[in-house]
Design a protein around this nucleic acid. Sequence first.
DNA 1: GGCACCCGTCAAAGATTTCTGACACATCTC
DNA 2: GAGATGTGTCAGAAATCTTTGACGGGTGCC
Lengths: 136, 136
Amino acid sequence: MPEVPHGVTTGDALLKVLSALGNPHRMRIVAALLENRNYVSALAREIGMGRPLLHMHLQRLEAAGLVTGTRELAEDGKTMKYYDVTPFVYELTPHVIARAAATLTGTGDGPGDDTAGRTTGRPDRGAQEDAEEEAK
Amino acid sequence: MPEVPHGVTTGDALLKVLSALGNPHRMRIVAALLENRNYVSALAREIGMGRPLLHMHLQRLEAAGLVTGTRELAEDGKTMKYYDVTPFVYELTPHVIARAAATLTGTGDGPGDDTAGRTTGRPDRGAQEDAEEEAK
DNA sequence: GGCACCCGTCAAAGATTTCTGACACATCTC
DNA sequence: GAGATGTGTCAGAAATCTTTGACGGGTGCC
């Protein structure tokens, strides 16, 4: 609603999101965090997974902008990192994919350049295609 | 939108879609096919990729229901396999992921554990979450 | 001091996925 | 026949992702 500015997602960004979500464990992590946020160790116990592993998965999810970690201080002084799910909204359609593919860095025939491109930097915004006409 | 029956996508099915799309080459393939359908060898030439490789990618995409291959007979008798992009529509949100995660087979705690992913069967069905009561 | 809990990281195994170079088959044309 | 095109498959290398078992640091409590 107020969020989701709208569809200016880089190919690279979308790629990160898709490959991040394309993993059973990571899906499960998102599910668990959606039900209730919590910190790494607890989450690890909840879904039965080693801390190092979970850590790495969370990192991947955060890099894709799907979850965010915040360092919080418990009452007894323990520092714990809580993770929350980002309210992302991505609409996947052939067009969206095609458009994203056009801005892929790496092996692309990108529009002219190959310098680690136009990643909006910190985009964790959802992708929304505004309806438009596409002569094809 | 007559299509998009509405969100009855298996976790496994969604997982396939996401991991299929989470690959630069495959995104590019979808993009190329969206612009104009064509057959394997030609496509391979167009995007500069070995036939065996492309074949495998197409298979992955088709398994996810994102493209469909049809065997057609050219005028000179050559049999060629044309590929088309399926007009899929998937909406990715934390909820969709969570719900999908609940029906994952494999290492899941799935409610009932079904033998194999049961998709709508039909290739071009998208996943749509209909807004419903969900207070978190 | 011990113990519990929290946070992180590293290096090496293990399992997948990706990619390549053959090979098989078919048809039509020269 | 040899050559062009098309289809598909297979086995093995190469690269990547996943997973594990140490380690390191920190705090507070008995």
